[in-house]
Design a protein around this nucleic acid. Structure first.
Lengths: 116, 116
DNA sequence: CAGTATCCCATTTGATACTG
DNA sequence: CAGTATCAAATGGGATACTG
């Protein structure tokens, strides 16, 4: 109880971040507004179904907005909401970790994959 | 290419964080050395199989160490490695997000679950 | 105590073809 | 272009009982 863990709420976050492609998808959205096709290419070889599923879920969770432009060549834009943008520090921290990995020489890593 | 995304490496991180219980599990390990039973109770109702699977995976990835004490009542301790501890900023960032959620009144949230 | 061994089920993800 | 519809395949997770 001296434990600063606030259960339930972190799970709200897990519901957002879970899924094989979600982190990768969000990373791209931090770079700005993206269209379905762009994301699909960026996350290749993700299937359209999976991409749609993820985007819909993020939409429901209030992380991204979906804007349809019914003009001649139809297109749709996905953009992070404010709530979504508040996730950025998490990704920045992830980037820092990745950097620390790259620069740290004593990466003992997986002995398993080395022996095979 | 102006995009600061370093592919491949972030996926190394995803391999570590993926899985239903991993985040929750790591959170507990940041609180110090834990024994199997402790983790099991803390993550209840996780199954022993799943807990073992996750711990083994984190071990392989160099995130935790497993120390066996073959004394009378056998016990095993799990502890974060240095590499594992470097993940903490990510969790702190997650905590910050959760806090921001709690304090932010304009949580539009899921319209779906509200209407049902 | 700290797992392992099995078996099963549910959810995710993927492949592909088709549509407003 | 941006999906949806379908069905199959893969994976992960869970329940339970047993063991060093």
């Amino acid at each position: 109880m001296s434990d600063p863990i606030c259960p339930g709420s972190i799970e709200r976050l897990l519901e957002i971040l879970e899924g094989k492609w979600t982190l990768l998808l969000l990373r791209h959205l931090f770079n700005g507004i993206k269209r379905f096709g762009e994301l699909r290419r960026a996350l290749h070889p993700i299937s359209p179904k999976t991409l749609t599923d993820r985007l819909r879920l993020l939409e429901e969770r209030g992380i991204v907005t979906r804007t349809v432009y019914s003009e001649v060549p139809l297109h749709v834009e996905y953009q992070l909401t404010e709530r979504g943008r508040r996730l950025e520090p998490i990704f920045i921290a992830m980037g820092v970790w990745v950097q620390s990995e790259a620069s740290d020489p004593k990466n003992e890593l997986v002995s398993k994959s080395l022996s095979s």
